[in-house]
Design a protein around this nucleic acid. Structure first.
Lengths: 247, 247
DNA sequence: CGCGATTTGTGCACGCCTTCACAAGCGCCT
DNA sequence: AGGCGCTTGTGAAGGCGTGCACAAATCGCG
């Protein structure tokens, strides 16, 4: 992915700090650092070393330092990073200083769970609208929100200023829903349906497929089994892998 | 190039399918190819070109060919790939020829949804046991399974031959659950709790954090906004990204 | 039977990401 | 005040993954 960079840095702090094009890999890890930092903060820590934060986030300390260096230097040599300051910085970079409105489409098994998931609220998001195509589901109240018919998506998305759309419909309906979200001006989509979405340039799609995760684990299970069974008896060697999802 | 036989023949000496260490990136894409192949098969296709399959899976055709070449050549030049054969091959490589037993821990909002998620069953997995620590939940029946107390995890996991553990508990309980899963002999874990798990070598962990996905989208949203707002008025340029989750 | 159209398989170059190793900077203790 | 230990920030090297471009292989048709 290539991106144009955003030119100059106006000297003023707090003013829009020109956006470094952060490497995608770094962006994917920032949320993890943020979570670790919140934990550390609640535990009473004022500062953390890269080593300590790296351990809490499950990464290599050199990687962590390089990641943080990309967004400017907020550490103090010999001391570490100021927890509160770093939290503020990362939240700013991720755009979490403004609570983003999320619209959720597809109130089935999964959608129901997502609608009530605490993690969204506690980490900078707010679900503002629920949609489904099934008339039986329309009108149902879930966690303080009323399910609306999908036909209202365009209108409601504008009214509520929905920034991110979450698709939790069956695969067959996903593309149509994506089209409607795009038409409603949504430029970020999180897709739980097992299918590829086609969207215009400028729209970001992230896909989460629960079955795929299991299948990847299955592969490693399979490999481990054939390793321990056959060759000169390697014990459970291999390498314990802690892969985190993220592109 | 590489060997490969499959079907029966329980390994003998060197004749084993010894697993080509597939690049992780390739492994992560195989399930997507598999899904696309199933769709094509149901649509009545006998063969597919790399171009066609790549489009259905949302990837570059060169990448797809290279991925498939890693597991041996099952395509015919001038024609394409035999859909049925390729499905069989990929399922074998992923170890899906044997339906793996999944144990799910944490029957909250998310766990409930996962327990009833069709995608697992239809793609080679079977949830065989549900666990929770809350006595009120124990005994509850969900989709034909009875929720059992977490203390029974060790016993039941062995009896049911659980291969993969899914953790859908709050973050605070996740590490303890992981330890119990490992103690019960489970070597693959899918973690939905927002925390890093520490496991011994030989155990694979994959993490899915729904809030992190949203935060990554938020970053791009933020970037897009600052791009359109500031420089000489670029419209919604940037690059529409279709990132798929996977390590 | 041979030719051309088609599609796979892959060598190669490029770029991103990771990791190491170390100099520079900072605070604390004497 | 000065030195010492600790930690950050980063240059450089290596590995991995991607995508291009093309040779090899196969089929269909005249």
């Amino acid at each position: 992915m290539s991106q144009q960079r955003h030119g100059s840095t106006p000297g003023e702090p707090g003013a829009v700090p020109a956006f470094p094009d952060l490497p995608e890999a770094t962006v994917a890890r920032l949320p993890e650092y943020l979570r670790a930092l919140h934990n550390l903060g609640e535990a009473g820590a004022d500062t953390v070393s890269s080593e300590g934060l790296a351990a809490a986030a499950g990464v290599n300390s050199a990687k962590l330092r390089k990641d943080l260096s990309h967004l400017g230097s907020y550490g103090t040599r010999g001391v570490g990073y100021d927890v509160a300051l770093l939290i503020e910085q990362i939240e700013f970079v991720l755009g979490l200083d403004q609570r983003r409105a999320v619209g959720l489409v597809g109130i089935g098994n999964l959608g129901h769970a997502l609608a009530g998931y605490d993690g969204f609220v506690s980490r900078g998001f707010k679900i503002v609208a629920l949609f489904d195509a099934d008339p039986d589901k329309v009108g149902e109240r879930i966690h303080g929100l009323t399910v609306r018919h999908i036909d209202e998506l365009g209108k409601v998305a504008s009214e509520e200023n929905v920034a991110i759309g979450v698709i939790a419909t069956p695969a067959g309906a996903a593309q149509a829903v994506a089209d409607e979200l795009v038409a409603a001006g949504v430029t970020s989509i999180l897709n739980f349906a097992p299918c590829v979405l086609s969207v215009p340039p400028g729209v970001d799609v992230r896909k989460v497929d629960l079955a795929i995760e299991l299948q990847i684990l299955s592969f490693h299970e399979h490999r481990k089994a054939s390793l321990t069974a056959l060759p000169g008896g390697r014990s459970a060697t291999g390498a314990g892998n802690q892969e985190a999802v993220g592109s």
